[in-house]
Amino acid sequence: MSVESLERQARNYLSNNVPQIQEHGGHFEIEDADTESGEVTVAIGGACSGCGIAPMTMKAIKHRLPTEVDDISKVTVRRAGGPRAAVMPSMIDEMEEMEEYEDYDPAF
């Protein structure tokens, strides 16, 4: 399998199963893909920058992408850099530790 194929599989899954990102003005990009290890790095940004559930969207992508795409074994999700970067970096770790989000299961 080629890197392009792995990236395409990840992009297709996200476009088809997490349309909220783009529908709400956000964006995602596949920053890195390793065919040997099956590891993929996804960056989200745009309107995700100010979205209160962006950390939970990131968590859902991290957990669901490897279970839904056979050739992907591990996913790292980060905030995109530059002028479209997310503005809530300190909230991600804090929100992942909150009990309210322990069983968070978004509709995508």
Rank of each mutant, 00 (worst) to 15 (best):
L14M: 06
L14E: 00
L14T: 01
S15L: 15
N16L: 14
N17W: 08
V18A: 01
V18H: 00
P19K: 05
P19W: 10
Q22R: 15
G25L: 07
G26F: 03
F28K: 03
I30S: 03
I30L: 05
I30E: 03
E31Y: 05
D34N: 10
D34Y: 03
D34W: 04
E36V: 14
E36M: 10
E36K: 12
S37A: 09
S37R: 08
G38C: 06
V40S: 04
V40G: 00
V42H: 00
V42Y: 01
V42T: 04
G45V: 02
A47Q: 11
A47W: 06
A47Y: 08
A47L: 09
S49C: 10
G50I: 07
C51H: 02
C51I: 01
C51D: 03
G52D: 05
I53H: 07
I53D: 04
I53E: 05
A54V: 08
P55R: 02
M56H: 02
M56D: 05
M56P: 02
A60G: 07
A60N: 11
I61R: 01
K62M: 12
H63A: 15
L65W: 08
T67G: 12
T67N: 13
T67P: 02
E68Q: 15
I72Y: 00
I72K: 01
K74C: 08
V75A: 05
V75P: 00
V77W: 01
G81R: 10
R84A: 14
R84W: 07
A85T: 11
A85D: 06
A86R: 07
V87N: 10
V87E: 11
P89E: 04
D93H: 12
E94G: 06
E94T: 15
E94D: 13
M95K: 11
E96H: 14
E97I: 08
E99T: 14
E99I: 10
E100A: 15
Y101Q: 04
E102C: 07
D103M: 11
D103E: 13
Y104P: 00
P106V: 13
P106R: 09
P106E: 12
